[in-house]
Design a protein around this nucleic acid. Structure first.
Lengths: 119, 119, 119, 119
DNA sequence: GTGGTCTAGACCACT
DNA sequence: GTGGTCTAGACCACG
């Protein structure tokens, strides 16, 4: 379970983010079904509408697809997933850069430090 | 003010983290005085004991030094600050690596992506 | 006023559609402010959330932009508007084709009929 | 059955329109019998008088013919059907033109767009 | 049962 | 005041 929310981002965005990561990491494989609105609402202890809102975001990105009464599924379009995967990685990279820049490290420093850690 | 706490880490560690960043980023310069326990407790809307606990952590790392009744000050030992700065950057790098690894990117991929974003 | 809703499409989509047409037709010029959520909700006699939902759609398309407490504005990006304008025209053309096809007219017939009417 | 009515046109005209389309599209072939007033009234969940009114319209156009106690039938006069079919197509063309004109497209643009979609 | 839509009403921050 | 978020609860259609 372990649904904990950070207070400074909208809950529905945090839910969307988690689902997204599960999809992009492959935990939810292409074409596989996603837990229902009501299930997730129960687990996360939020209103079903909030989960609905989260799913809307992911549908806009094309990551998940609603098949009406059959439930929601991960898209089978590998390109969409690949694109989102790369975009997410890029945004993580930007975040990392921003953080180390605030510590007065240059971008070149950041790359050096990362290389060191990557060994 | 905007003090918001993430629910999955102890609050006192989160407070320590923030102060630490301010020191390492230079916002609180070497030798400069740090706001009092009461001030910070008020801003963060937490118990003064919690702030006290946060300070203990930073004192253990040698980043801040208590001068008794005069208050607390950022260490003037540049080496300590430099060391912590680098340690923090390393841990950020580790986090970044961990995140992108979860997206099925290799460390080499991570470095490539970072280089791309660093431009 | 005259807000009448068709029963076979979601109300929020019908609201979005109307706003969209006003933008694409130039009635709401680029950069101009759009009526507030509450105003439209009042005029249309629907819940503010429904209007909010409508606006979300248009924001996803990039047609309108929220400036937080200042209100919502038509995008100043002429390309986005031009693109949407053309897309809408295309979908109207498709609808027209579909309708006349159901009357057993060929696409060539449709073009002939249109040319006749266009004089 | 899914009979849904638009709120801005008289219901009897909407019913007439639907029956007319079924005739002109060939779903109701020349000379074939048309469902009874009662059947249609039931399906559409409206008062039989409303359906009666709709039939009157179609009789005036000569599209359907009442054979007293035997019921109502689609005219076998091919010219009448052909004429109505063309008139309906024309009015659809006018509607299409009007819509795209409102989007600031010229009639020539409309024809271009239609040709593009007709491929 | 499922997703989808809508209402009524509340609270928050201030792009 | 504004947009934004969230809750509680309802109804609908059936992908």
């Amino acid at each position: 379970m372990a649904w904990s929310f950070n207070s400074d981002k909208a809950v529905y965005l945090q839910i969307a983010e988690r689902i997204k990561r599960k999809v992009l990491s492959g935990e939810y494989g292409a074409g596989s079904q996603i837990p229902t609105v009501r299930q997730l609402a129960l687990e996360a202890a939020v209103n079903p509408n909030t989960v609905q809102h989260a799913f809307s975001e992911l549908e806009n990105e094309g990551i998940i697809i609603s098949k009406g009464t059959l439930g929601r599924f991960v898209t089978e379009n590998a390109e969409v997933i690949e694109f989102s995967r790369r975009e997410l990685a890029k945004s993580l990279a930007k975040e990392f850069l921003k953080s180390v820049n605030e510590l007065s490290f240059s971008n070149a420093d950041a790359i050096e430090i990362l290389k060191e850690e990557a060994k």
